[in-house]
Simulated assay, not measured.
Amino acid sequence: MTPDRVRAPGRIWLRLAALLVVLNGTFPMIWIFLTSLKTESELTRRPITWLPLEPTLANYVRAFADQPLWLYVVNSLVVALLSTALSILAASLAAYALARLRVRGRELILAALVAVSTFPLITLLVPLFQIMRGLGLLNTYPALVLPYAVLNLPVCTLVLVSFFESIPKDLENAAMLDGCTRLGALWRIVIPLSAPGMFTAAILAFVNAWDEFLLALSFLGSQRMRTVSVGITLYQGEFAFPWPLISAALMMALLPVVVLIVLFQERVVSGLTQGGLKG
């Protein structure tokens, strides 16, 4: 048998495995979208209809009419963007220090970052709530921006360290010989060359902040400050769960993340693969 014939079964299995992974990741979103186009009566009929018999956009109209969904989306965007920017700024400085400077206990610090990133969020809820209440920040954007930035900092730092270490030091030395400060070399040389890693870390931070529910529910009690993850829970009643309506609201909540991933998918994939190879 030729080598190509020997490898053919292996390639088929790899493609099937890849197809299963793709279906596993996309089927929930597809099902939510199809549900959002159905009526309540069609959703409960037997046997189940996979495709809507009479597609309708009424659930999307109701999603914006029953609750201020646009306001929730805007609140989530503000919180996610601000916390992501703050995380990336702090993580860039921390990662550069760990990658370039002679920091005592560097390995211990990296191990601590890994350990901290695994802490269950529920264990931090009470102390964070007391801090925010003491600072008078409840029902304000900083009540979520600051905790999200801190919680995303370990992951962002770990991602960026591997990228910064891969950049030759000679480039920074040449920039500093030309009059750049070390901080200037970071912003003008290291960060532009680490663009895939920056995008990867930023999108991870953004998605984590966008999806977070527990802190948003606990720190923002005012309706005008609610984020979309909390706002979606308001569509259900005490005895009723209007799944088509909730699905329509979920699709609007997923839309910004999907657009972000589609726009920057090449940089994200590049950042994940390069980070894996260099780490």
Rank of each mutant, 00 (worst) to 15 (best):
M1K: 10
P3C: 02
V6C: 04
A8E: 11
P9K: 13
W13L: 15
L16N: 04
A17V: 13
L20S: 15
V22T: 14
V22N: 07
M29E: 00
W31C: 00
L34V: 09
L34E: 10
L37Y: 02
S41T: 14
E42F: 10
E42H: 12
E42G: 10
E42N: 09
R45I: 01
R46A: 12
R46D: 04
I48N: 02
W50T: 07
L51K: 07
P52N: 13
P52E: 12
L53A: 14
T56N: 03
T56R: 06
L57T: 08
A58R: 12
A58S: 13
Y60G: 01
D66W: 03
V73W: 04
V73G: 00
V74C: 01
V78R: 11
A80Q: 04
L81Y: 02
I88H: 06
I88Y: 11
S92G: 10
S92P: 05
A94Y: 00
A95V: 07
L98T: 09
L98N: 12
A99Q: 07
A99K: 10
R102S: 14
V103I: 15
R104Y: 02
G105C: 02
G105R: 07
I109A: 12
L113Y: 05
V114H: 06
A115C: 11
L124G: 09
L125S: 01
Q130E: 14
M132D: 10
R133F: 08
G134W: 03
L137Y: 12
L137K: 00
L138M: 12
N139I: 04
Y141M: 06
L144E: 06
V145Q: 02
V145A: 03
L146A: 10
P147L: 06
V150A: 15
T157R: 09
L158W: 09
V161T: 14
S162H: 11
S162E: 07
F163G: 06
F164A: 04
P168Q: 13
P168Y: 14
K169G: 15
D170G: 09
N173Y: 09
A174C: 07
G179M: 03
C180G: 00
L183E: 11
G184M: 04
G184Y: 03
W187C: 02
I189V: 15
I189L: 03
L193C: 03
S194M: 05
P196T: 13
P196H: 06
F199P: 00
A202Q: 07
A202C: 08
L214R: 05
A216E: 03
S222T: 03
M225A: 05
V228G: 04
G231M: 03
T233W: 03
G237F: 10
E238I: 13
F239A: 06
W243K: 00
P244N: 11
S247M: 09
A249G: 14
L250F: 01
L250P: 00
V258E: 02
Q265V: 06
Q265A: 09
Q265M: 08
E266F: 08
E266T: 14
V269I: 15
L272R: 02
L272T: 00
G276L: 08
L277G: 01
G279S: 08
G279T: 05
